[in-house]
Structures are given as structure tokens and as C-alpha cells.
């Protein structure tokens, strides 16, 4: 290559970096950089009134799973923490599965509308997607709380005499999360189904498959990248959910997100909050890596 050509390539790379630099600086200062500080804080000691005391310690990491007895200093399983982890994982998985079960037919429905109607249905699913999560959680809260629409209606109809206690239960958190995260499942599923070649169905039926067999053997394997994407998009925020469990779960039914916040509030244990955050981040990253592998390994649908 001539020096002029090399200069051209160097200039292209340099311009790429220069143009990206402002975005990278903002992200480094207010998104990525601070994550490194979290890792550092997870190895420090808690300050008396919050914040940290500089000094190396593994207590925060131990504190994720164990409690130290105040009197004899022995380690025991931290049952309260384990309950919170189990609830978070359980509710996130349930939410993911249920949003798929109802989200798939919804996405299929949208994708099989005639072109003109499709845009409208898609728009209808996009509005909740972009609507403030707080507002949507609040809307669900208004329906299921003790003096909410559901209970008052049932009482007025004389079906029940006192309100059913739906709010502040795991069930309420599950319903709320399913409600708020459903669009996150439907949109990637729609994208996958939209690319699906409907002539394959004709081929399937032509070869004696029943509707159920076509669904299982033809449709689901081909739209798998969409299923994986939707599952990740729901599972990741569900596992780190904060607003929905706070409003619908109350103080008792905490999830990891609320437990992390607690460490920076009343708990006054920033290192533990930091170690919990790092743990959450690791789990989420692992889930994303699985997604990347699936998405790259499955390229048959012309992605």
C-alpha cells in the first residue's frame, strides 16, 4: 500500500474515534466507569452512617449468603437473603415464562394482520412499551389494591364481603411484572415472526403436519432467536426490578433490587449493596452471553 492509502485508512480510524469520543467520555463518566468503583467498594468496610471506611474486607461478599452471629461470631446461612434471592429468581422466571405464553400468540396475531392494520396493532403494543413503567405499575396498583377497582366492583356486586388482599403479595408482584414487561417480550417475537416465511406453513401442512405439529416443528425452531431475545429482555430487568416490587410488594416482599437499595438506606451497608450489585451484574452478563451465543449460532432465518 502506498503511504497515501495508509494515511487514508489511519484517517478513517482516527475520525471514527474522534467522532465517538464525546459519547464515550459521557458513558465512561456516567455509566461504565462508576461500575468499576462498585467493584472496589464491595471489598471495603461499611461506615457507621453509610458510605465506606477504607480497609480491605471480604465481609460484603460473605454477607451475600451468610450472617455472622453477633455473640459467638459463627457463620450461618442468611435465611432472609436467601428468601429474597429465591423470590427474585422465581418471580423473574415465572414472569418470563408467562409473558412468553401470552406474548407469543399476541406477536403472531400482530404479524399475521393485513399490512395496513399491522402498523396500528404494532403501535398499540409500542405505546405501553414507551409509557413510564411507574405509571403502568400504578395503573395495576389501582386495579388490585384493597380499595381498588376490582375489589370495589366485586363487593358492590355482593360477591365478596371484604376486600381480597391481593396487593403486597408475591402474586401481585408477578402480575405487575408480567403486565409491565409484556411489551418487551412481544416486540422481539414480532420481529422474528415478521421475518418468518409463511410459505413454510404451506409446506408443513402439505406434508401432513397438524397445526400443533407445525407450531412445534416449524414455527418455534425458526423464531427461536426472537424467543431468546424476548426472554432476555424480560428476564434481565425483572431480576433487577425495583419499582414494581416496591409498589406492589410493599416492604415485606422485597426483590434483589429493593434489597440493594436497602443497603444504601436504612441498612447502611454500602459494601454489601456493592457486592450484591456486582453479583446481579454477573448473572445478567452471563444471561446476555448465552443470548449472544444463541443469536449468532442460529442464523438460518436470514438475520
Amino acid at each position: 500500500m502506498s503511504p497515501a492509502e495508509q494515511a487514508q485508512i489511519r484517517r478513517a480510524a482516527r475520525n471514527g474515534w474522534l467522532l465517538s469520543a464525546p459519547a464515550l467520555v459521557i458513558l465512561a463518566l456516567a455509566a461504565v466507569g462508576p461500575l468499576i468503583i462498585v467493584v472496589v467498594y464491595s471489598f471495603l468496610l461499611p461506615g457507621k452512617y453509610g458510605n465506606v471506611v477504607w480497609g480491605f474486607s471480604l465481609d460484603a461478599w460473605r454477607g451475600i449468603l451468610f450472617t455472622r452471629d453477633i455473640f459467638d461470631g459463627t457463620l450461618a446461612w442468611a435465611d432472609a437473603n436467601l428468601t429474597i434471592f429465591w423470590r427474585s429468581v422465581k418471580l423473574s422466571i415465572l414472569t418470563t415464562v408467562f409473558t412468553f405464553v401470552v406474548g407469543f400468540p399476541t406477536a403472531w396475531f400482530i404479524a399475521t394482520r393485513p399490512p395496513r392494520g399491522r402498523a396500528l396493532w404494532l403501535f398499540l403494543i409500542t405505546i405501553p412499551f414507551w409509557t413510564n413503567l411507574l405509571i403502568r405499575t400504578f395503573a395495576i396498583n389501582e386495579i388490585i389494591r384493597n380499595e381498588g377497582l376490582l375489589n370495589t366492583t366485586l363487593m358492590r356486586l355482593g360477591l365478596i364481603s371484604k376486600p381480597i388482599e391481593m396487593i403486597y403479595t408475591d402474586g401481585a408482584v408477578f402480575v405487575g411484572m408480567t403486565y409491565v414487561y409484556l411489551p418487551l417480550m412481544v416486540l422481539p417475537l414480532f420481529a422474528a415472526i415478521d421475518r418468518f416465511d409463511m410459505r413454510l406453513l404451506e409446506a408443513g401442512y402439505d406434508l401432513y403436519a397438524s397445526r400443533w405439529q407445525v407450531l412445534r416443528r416449524v414455527i418455534l425452531p425458526i423464531v427461536k432467536p426472537g424467543i431468546v431475545a424476548g426472554s432476555i429482555l424480560v428476564f434481565v430487568p425483572a431480576l433487577g426490578a425495583y419499582v414494581t416490587p416496591r409498589i406492589l410488594g410493599g416492604g415485606k416482599n422485597m426483590m434483589i433490587g429493593n434489597f440493594i437499595e436497602l443497603q444504601f438506606g436504612q441498612g447502611r451497608n454500602w459494601p454489601l449493596g456493592a457486592s450484591l450489585s456486582v453479583t446481579l451484574l454477573v448473572i445478567v452478563t452471563a444471561a446476555l452471553l448465552v443470548y449472544v451465543r444463541y443469536a449468532n449460532g442460529d442464523d438460518r432465518n436470514g438475520r
Binding site: 455509566a31 462508576p34 461500575l35 462498585v38 425495583y242 440493594i260 454500602w270 446481579l280 451484574l281 446476555l288
Partner: peptide, 14 residues
């Protein structure tokens, strides 16, 4: 890709 709560905590500390 990062859960909001984790970013929130990181920024709180920083």
C-alpha cells in the same frame, strides 16, 4: 445491558 439498579448504585457511589 446493565440493570438500572446497578447503574443507579454505581452512580450513587461515584
Amino acid at each position: 445491558m446493565v440493570p438500572e439498579i446497578v447503574t443507579a448504585v454505581a452512580l450513587l457511589i461515584f
